[in-house]
């Protein structure tokens, strides 16, 4: 009876839809809650690098600090500046946030796994697009609209300058970033993220074949997610807080969330493109290797934040246009020559 029920095509389709829905919900929830531990880790790492302790008083070793911060943010007054464009002002954080989440639709976290009891094979990604990497780059670039609109709608000089800087930075570095990805695509011969990972299995990690591409990707990626040394859109020293200077309460939290999610997605992308995704020694399941690698890269990003000073704006542009862009073109050229 059960066999008959389970082989019914309609039921099969229903199960497929259900599985996808569950995957979407799980990924969204996980990504949504990731910034909580990340803020804690960031503050702890910052503290220890500066020979302090970081958050320490809320819960043992300050472990509940992110929750306290969240409660504080929720209960803060949501201020919309007088003369700001209220509609844009309200919608900008959402515009910034949605693409950051949408990126995760094509991110593969591992190979197929079989769920016990119902004996069903489930892929550890929501969808495997043929042009996954293009999708990721395009969607990730959309986030900057939220930042620009937020800066514009605030009707404040600092916020506007932050937004402008963000857009200029995004344009300059998106090019180098995409060109660095092209090197990988040429080696692997596919645009699908799953294929890219599969091609690297057995220690054929792309970082060995594309060292220059990796360096360009890492630098441009840091600029892309507005982290130090490229966090000019929110440069405290010169712009107050940059594009979110006028934001408070949950809208500010949305911007923060976007930044952390962008950091996670950039680390994930780096692992997929250059560190072999879930490839690793067999004694741990692939997804664990994947998470270890992502965690390590996130740690390195945080670590650099508290090591380096910020570049000046003209230096940022010089690095982007005069160094990274020619280098990435050179990388494509070399890759092309070698591959052919």
């Amino acid at each position: 009876m059960f066999e008959l029920f389970i082989s019914n095509p309609l039921v099969l389709m229903m199960i497929e839809v259900l599985v996808i829905c569950i995957k979407v919900v799980v990924v969204t929830l996980v990504v949504f809650s990731l910034p909580l531990p990340l803020t804690y880790i960031e503050r702890k790492v910052a503290g220890h690098i500066q020979v302090r302790l970081g958050p320490y008083r809320v819960g043992p070793h300050g472990i509940l600090q992110p929750l306290a911060d969240m409660i504080k943010l929720i209960f803060k007054e949501d201020i919309i500046p007088y003369k700001a464009d209220p509609w844009l002002f309200k919608i900008a954080p959402i515009i910034a946030m949605v693409p950051a989440f949408a990126v995760f639709a094509t991110i593969p976290f591992g190979e197929k796994v079989t769920i016990p009891f119902i004996d069903k094979e489930v892929t550890l990604y929501i969808s495997d697009m043929d042009t996954g990497i293009l999708y990721v780059l395009a969607i990730a670039g959309l986030s900057v609209y939220g930042i620009i609109l937020g800066g514009w709608a605030s009707n404040s000089k600092y916020a506007l300058l932050g937004g402008l800087r963000s857009s200029a930075q995004m344009i300059s570095y998106e090019l180098a970033l995409s060109f660095a990805c092209i090197g990988v695509v040429m080696v692997v011969n596919s645009l699908s993220l799953v294929d890219i990972v599969r091609a690297q299995s057995g220690w054929h990690w792309n970082i060995l074949y594309q060292p220059l591409g990796f360096v360009i990707f890492a630098i441009a990626g840091l600029a892309e997610i507005n982290r130090i040394p490229f966090d000019l859109p929110e440069d405290e020293g010169t712009l107050g807080a940059g594009y979110h200077a006028e934001y408070s309460s949950m809208r500010f939290a949305f911007f923060m969330l976007t930044e952390y999610v962008a950091m996670v997605s950039m680390s994930v992308l780096m692992v997929i493109l250059f560190f072999g995704g879930w490839d690793g020694p067999g004694f741990l399941p692939g997804i664990v290797w994947f998470l270890i690698k992502v965690a390590f890269i996130i740690y390195v990003i945080i670590w650099t934040r508290f090591t380096y000073p910020r570049y000046r704006y003209d230096q940022l542009m010089t690095i982007g246009w005069k160094i990274l862009l020619p280098l990435s073109l050179l990388n494509i050229l070399i890759t092309g020559l070698v591959v052919i």
Binding site: V45, R52, Y56
Partner: peptide, 10 residues
Amino acid sequence: YTFSKTITLR
């Protein structure tokens, strides 16, 4: 420095 002793007085 990350793994050096902290100077924070608790």
